[in-house]
């Protein structure tokens, strides 16, 4: 099987509100796949349906291989020590803790620390270590670096790359475009429960190249435009101001960043 995850026409409603409106995606084995979207776009619901954490109304989901999950909001009992948590979940998974992997995540130094005494970054590292205890082939990461400082993010990114090198498939949800650009080979951008874009970051960048942000500052204020054909559209815009006999005080033309393009897609602008 070429794909680690195959999702066909996934639909899910909460009451009368349809949050997933026919999601289709395939995640190749060994790739890092990013799911992006603004808050409420359906990222976590999509992930939880694939993980088996949430029932869905219709559609088909196929996951090839054992899965490991790092939840967006997760917690452990306040008085459990990091080492005890690793041993407990290793036993539930009928697996032995991997000392090399634990060392890479810096877990040995947390061994005797109680969960309530861990920093956000240390908790994230522990959650990832727990997600990996069962030696999964497919790993789900939901906002893996949320709340982490720069050092924590870099450390976690390194670990994610290390997991990819080991041939594992990683599917991660995020709303951080730069993080996704660094880590993911392919991405899906969700908007209103549908996939607005699915492809590589290069494909997204190519699409971005056709968009320009134009800002026109006049005595009355600032107007913003987003256009694809800069030559034709800019002429039309300038003509509009000339006809109104308005003085243009300043004119700015920018190629949109990847992040701006993501926002346009994610918000359906």
């Amino acid at each position: 099987m070429k794909y680690a995850i195959q999702v066909s026409n996934l639909r899910k409603s909460y009451g009368s509100k349809e949050v997933l409106k026919g999601i289709n995606l395939q995640v190749k084995k060994g790739e890092i796949f990013g799911i992006l979207g603004v808050n409420g776009a359906g990222k976590t619901t999509t992930l939880e349906c694939i993980e088996g954490f949430r029932r869905y109304d219709s559609g088909e989901i196929r996951v090839d291989g054992k899965i490991g999950i790092q939840l967006q909001s997760a917690s452990l009992p306040a008085y459990i020590k990091a080492g005890e948590a690793v041993r407990l979940f290793a036993k539930w998974n009928h697996a032995e803790p991997d000392p090399a992997r634990l060392s890479a995540l810096g877990i040995p130094e947390l061994e005797k620390k109680r969960y309530m005494g861990l920093s956000t970054g240390q908790k994230r590292r522990l959650h990832l270590a727990l997600a990996l205890t069962g030696n999964p082939a497919v790993i789900f990461l939901d906002e893996p670096t949320a709340g982490l400082d720069v050092e924590g993010r870099i450390s976690l990114h390194k670990e994610i790359f290390r997991l990819k090198k080991q041939g594992r498939t990683i599917i991660m949800a995020s709303h951080d475009m730069s993080e996704v650009e660094n880590l993911c080979g392919r991405i899906a951008i969700l908007n209103g429960g549908k996939i607005a874009f699915c492809g590589t970051t290069e494909e997204l960048a190519a699409k971005l190249g056709r968009h320009y942000d134009i800002r026109v500052i006049t005595e009355l204020g600032e107007d913003a435009y987003c256009v694809e054909d800069i030559r034709e559209e800019l002429t039309k815009i300038l003509e509009k101001y000339r006809k109104k006999e308005m003085n243009i005080l300043d004119l700015k033309v920018n190629r949109g960043t990847l992040e701006q393009h993501f926002i346009r897609l994610a918000k359906g602008v």
């Binding site: 954490f53 999950i69 939840l71 909001s73 997760a74 917690s75 452990l76 979940f89």
Partner: peptide, 21 residues
């Protein structure tokens, strides 16, 4: 309630521990 009323329950489930444990 610290287990079943919080994200600890999801953490247990996500990491392979049965709900009753």
């Amino acid at each position: 309630a610290e287990i079943y009323g919080t994200d600890v329950r999801k953490m247990y489930q996500a990491n392979g521990a049965p709900l009753w444990c």
